[in-house]
Amino acid sequence: MMSDAQIIEGCVRHDKRSQQELYSKYSRFLMGICLRYAADRAEAEDILQEVFLKIYFNIKDYSGTGSFTGWLRKVAVNTAITHYHRNLRYRYHEDIDEYIAVETGIASFEEDYFTSDELYNVLNGLPSGYRMVFNLYAVEGYKHKEIAEMLNIDVNTSKSQYSRAKAVMRGKLEKLRKLKETYSGGITDNDKQTD
């Protein structure tokens, strides 16, 4: 097993073995990030390919200070944002009003009540604008001002999209919980997607 420093040094030289090592060590972690920003697995894989190419060709820019995984995460998030911008015009624009009305009172979430697969499903089902803002704000921890700059939108848009995203997600999670309580057995994807 190579250390991060060895991997980085090898990748700078375009060394095949180091590239493989980087891939096997971090691809699952990066896929975890990409999947949050994508509508489905195929899109996530597209983003991940770009992420890896960026990493391989720009690894010399990694300063060495700061955590390597932090740098990788940043590359992944930036690539996802670029991808979002590029695909914006081809994407089906969902009707926002559809999601506004679903505000439901769900008090709190038990951490282990939902599996990560289920949470991914909820995220993937969001309109892409909501998903971007929610990921960047709630998971990545950016400020609304930064998000507005990254996504090239207004700060207020970022804020309102975030609150709408939350409302939508609460509704979805509530529905999911009810389903889970009703059928304590297996739940199909289709059931989860139904609104």
């Binding site: 975890g32 939902f114 949470l119 709630a138």
Partner: peptide, 13 residues
């Protein structure tokens, strides 16, 4: 909930 569950989740490829 999302940060903890999905912040550093690994997904198989």
């Amino acid at each position: 909930l999302f940060r903890k569950k999905l912040g550093s989740t690994e997904v198989m490829l």
